[in-house]
Protein backbone atom coordinates (compact mmCIF):
# COMPACT_ATOMS: atom_id res chain seq x y z
CA UNK A 1 0.00 0.00 0.00
CA UNK A 2 1.48 3.32 -1.06
CA UNK A 3 1.46 6.15 1.43
CA UNK A 4 3.18 8.83 -0.64
CA UNK A 5 1.32 11.98 0.46
CA UNK A 6 1.49 11.00 4.11
CA UNK A 7 5.28 10.93 4.12
CA UNK A 8 5.81 13.63 1.50
CA UNK A 9 3.90 16.09 3.72
CA UNK A 10 6.47 15.76 6.50
CA UNK A 11 9.53 15.47 4.29
CA UNK A 12 10.97 18.96 4.77
CA UNK A 13 10.59 18.67 8.53
CA UNK A 14 12.23 15.26 8.57
CA UNK A 15 14.98 16.04 6.05
CA UNK A 16 16.04 19.41 7.42
CA UNK A 17 14.77 19.35 11.03
CA UNK A 18 12.32 22.19 10.46
CA UNK A 19 10.27 23.01 13.54
CA UNK A 20 7.95 25.90 14.33
CA UNK A 21 8.62 28.84 16.63
CA UNK A 22 5.80 30.53 18.52
CA UNK A 23 6.60 34.20 18.02
CA UNK A 24 4.26 35.06 20.90
CA UNK A 25 6.34 33.31 23.61
CA UNK A 26 9.49 32.70 21.54
CA UNK A 27 9.47 28.91 22.11
CA UNK A 28 10.68 26.58 19.35
CA UNK A 29 8.74 23.34 18.82
CA UNK A 30 9.82 20.18 17.08
CA UNK A 31 7.92 18.25 15.72
CA UNK A 32 6.20 21.27 14.15
CA UNK A 33 2.90 22.42 15.62
CA UNK A 34 0.11 24.63 14.30
CA UNK A 35 -0.78 25.89 17.78
CA UNK A 36 1.54 26.68 20.70
CA UNK A 37 0.49 24.54 23.69
CA UNK A 38 1.39 27.39 26.08
CA UNK A 39 -0.09 30.40 24.26
CA UNK A 40 -2.95 28.52 22.55
CA UNK A 41 -5.21 31.01 20.71
CA UNK A 42 -2.70 33.83 21.18
CA UNK A 43 -0.37 31.86 18.90
CA UNK A 44 -2.76 31.51 15.96
CA UNK A 45 -1.05 32.85 12.84
CA UNK A 46 2.15 33.45 14.81
CA UNK A 47 3.89 30.08 14.32
CA UNK A 48 6.93 30.48 12.05
CA UNK A 49 8.97 27.63 10.55
CA UNK A 50 12.59 27.42 11.66
CA UNK A 51 15.38 24.99 10.84
CA UNK A 52 17.48 23.52 13.62
CA UNK A 53 21.26 23.06 13.48
CA UNK A 54 21.21 19.31 14.03
CA UNK A 55 23.37 19.52 17.17
CA UNK A 56 22.15 17.90 20.35
CA UNK A 57 22.94 15.62 23.26
CA UNK A 58 21.57 12.34 24.51
CA UNK A 59 19.05 12.82 27.32
CA UNK A 60 18.11 9.14 27.60
CA UNK A 61 18.51 6.04 25.45
CA UNK A 62 17.89 2.33 25.12
CA UNK A 63 19.27 -0.56 23.13
CA UNK A 64 16.36 -2.25 21.35
CA UNK A 65 16.57 -6.06 21.07
CA UNK A 66 12.99 -6.84 20.15
CA UNK A 67 11.78 -4.31 17.66
CA UNK A 68 9.45 -3.58 14.81
CA UNK A 69 9.39 -5.81 11.72
CA UNK A 70 10.71 -2.89 9.59
CA UNK A 71 13.81 -2.56 11.78
CA UNK A 72 14.53 -6.24 12.37
CA UNK A 73 17.75 -6.23 10.33
CA UNK A 74 19.19 -3.48 12.56
CA UNK A 75 18.71 -5.23 15.92
CA UNK A 76 20.24 -4.39 18.34
CA UNK A 77 19.74 -0.69 17.60
CA UNK A 78 19.92 2.40 19.79
CA UNK A 79 16.89 4.65 20.26
CA UNK A 80 17.42 7.92 22.09
CA UNK A 81 15.70 11.01 23.38
CA UNK A 82 17.88 13.78 21.98
CA UNK A 83 17.86 17.25 23.51
CA UNK A 84 18.52 19.63 20.64
CA UNK A 85 20.81 22.65 21.12
CA UNK A 86 17.80 24.88 20.30
CA UNK A 87 15.69 23.33 23.08
CA UNK A 88 13.25 20.75 21.65
CA UNK A 89 13.55 17.04 22.38
CA UNK A 90 13.07 14.38 19.73
CA UNK A 91 13.07 10.58 19.41
CA UNK A 92 15.64 9.11 17.01
CA UNK A 93 18.09 6.33 16.32
CA UNK A 94 21.79 6.71 17.12
CA UNK A 95 23.86 5.02 14.39
CA UNK A 96 27.43 4.32 13.25
CA UNK A 97 28.55 3.36 16.75
CA UNK A 98 28.47 0.44 19.14
CA UNK A 99 25.82 0.63 21.89
CA UNK A 100 28.60 0.85 24.52
CA UNK A 101 29.64 4.28 23.18
CA UNK A 102 26.25 5.79 23.92
CA UNK A 103 25.87 7.60 27.28
CA UNK A 104 23.55 10.21 28.74
CA UNK A 105 25.15 13.55 27.86
CA UNK A 106 26.96 12.28 24.72
CA UNK A 107 27.03 15.00 22.01
CA UNK A 108 25.38 13.95 18.76
CA UNK A 109 24.64 15.44 15.36
CA UNK A 110 21.84 14.80 12.87
CA UNK A 111 22.38 13.03 9.58
CA UNK A 112 19.94 12.22 6.76
CA UNK A 113 19.43 8.48 6.32
CA UNK A 114 17.06 5.91 4.92
CA UNK A 115 14.66 5.09 7.77
CA UNK A 116 12.34 2.47 6.29
CA UNK A 117 10.83 1.24 3.05
CA UNK A 118 7.54 -0.23 1.97
CA UNK A 119 8.73 -3.69 0.94
CA UNK A 120 11.57 -4.40 -1.52
CA UNK A 121 10.16 -2.40 -4.42
CA UNK A 122 8.26 0.19 -2.40
CA UNK A 123 8.89 3.78 -1.55
CA UNK A 124 11.96 4.48 0.55
CA UNK A 125 11.34 6.84 3.42
CA UNK A 126 14.15 9.08 4.63
CA UNK A 127 14.60 11.01 7.82
CA UNK A 128 17.05 11.98 10.53
CA UNK A 129 19.26 9.70 12.55
CA UNK A 130 22.08 10.86 14.82
CA UNK A 131 25.77 10.05 14.99
CA UNK A 132 28.16 10.63 17.89
CA UNK A 133 30.27 13.80 17.47
CA UNK A 134 33.98 13.01 17.03
Amino acid sequence: MSEVPRFWRESRHRYRLVGTRCTNCDTLYFPPRVICPTCRRESVGKMKEEEMSGAGEIYSFTVVHDGLEQFKMQIPYVMALVKMKEGPFLTAQIVDCSPEEVKIGTKVTATLRKVRSEGKAGIIQYGYKFTICP
Binding site: P31, Y59, S60, F61, T62, V64, D66, G67, L68, Q70, F71, Q74, Y77, M79, A80, L81, L90, T91, A92, Q93, I104, V115, R116, Q125, G127, Y128, K129
Partner: peptide
Protein backbone atom coordinates in the same frame (compact mmCIF):
# COMPACT_ATOMS: atom_id res chain seq x y z
CA UNK B 1 7.49 11.16 15.15
CA UNK B 2 8.19 8.09 17.31
CA UNK B 3 7.18 4.80 15.67
CA UNK B 4 8.33 5.97 12.22
CA UNK B 5 11.89 6.18 13.53
CA UNK B 6 11.90 2.72 15.14
CA UNK B 7 10.50 3.38 18.62
CA UNK B 8 8.44 0.67 20.27
CA UNK B 9 6.34 1.28 23.37
CA UNK B 10 8.84 -0.76 25.40
CA UNK B 11 11.71 1.39 24.08
CA UNK B 12 9.94 4.51 25.35
CA UNK B 13 9.42 2.83 28.76
CA UNK B 14 13.12 1.89 28.74
CA UNK B 15 14.15 5.50 28.15
CA UNK B 16 11.96 6.58 31.07
CA UNK B 17 13.66 3.93 33.23
CA UNK B 18 17.17 4.96 32.18
CA UNK B 19 16.58 8.64 32.95
Amino acid sequence: WETFFGATECSIAAMIARR
